[in-house]
Amino acid sequence: MKNLILTTAALALTAGIAMADTVRMGTEGAYPPYNFINDAGEIDGFEREVGDELCKRANLDCEWVKNDWDSIIPNLVSGNYDTIIAGMSITDERDEVIDFTQNYYPPTASAYVAAAEGVDVAGGIVAAQTATIQAGHVAESGATLVEFASPEETIAAVRNGEADAVLADYDFLVPIVEESGGELVFVGELVPLGGGIGMGFRESDAELRGKFDEAIASMKADGSLNEMLVKWFGEGISTYDADGTVVTN
């Protein structure tokens, strides 16, 4: 009798796991073109498209969840969603706490943007978003770091002269510089930071991570990931070979 109860309990458990095929995808929704809220109020962007395709290939039911950037990792490890897909660069410190898939976005550069050419980015005042890899880089570079709560404010700081330059993801800055009508320009060298962008998982969730890893590899192999990269980031973007190595354009 006792045995029987245990079996049903075990059955219920496995059933629970089988039922939990809805995968909750946590993202920020404030970082175009990676992820943002479109006019209709839905999550949109490069990662939305990639994520949906990955779910289709891994045969999973996915649901998108928005979460504030600052608490995005604590909420993942606490189990409020199952994966982070939010333009998160793979770094060593993050890797200690969560696990990443292989990158679905090649290691990219960060860039400085200023209001005029010839700004001294190594010794001037450089703005960055609080607690980003860019902020860490500026703090070490010898420039005077000034941190703002949101990416929006870092750009505004350069426009109104609070800071000489801003350091942020190159791809985030491109549309802003293009539409500024010459007011903002790229300065200095590109700074390679981080190991590309990957999806984050709980360390105990190796199975789910494996599924997505496989799906990413298949998207790299058939070139569909490259199409999306070019669609969202333009022709200049680095892409992947069929075996997953990065091709710089």
């Binding site: 600052d70 604590p74 607690a131 703090a139 000034v146 941190e147 703002f148 609070e162």
Partner: peptide, 24 residues
Amino acid sequence: FPAWQQRGDALYYASYFADKTFNP
């Protein structure tokens, strides 16, 4: 207000740690 050269108040440093250790 922006924090200059990582000079901030108690909450600024607390969230710095929370962000680095991912443990609030």
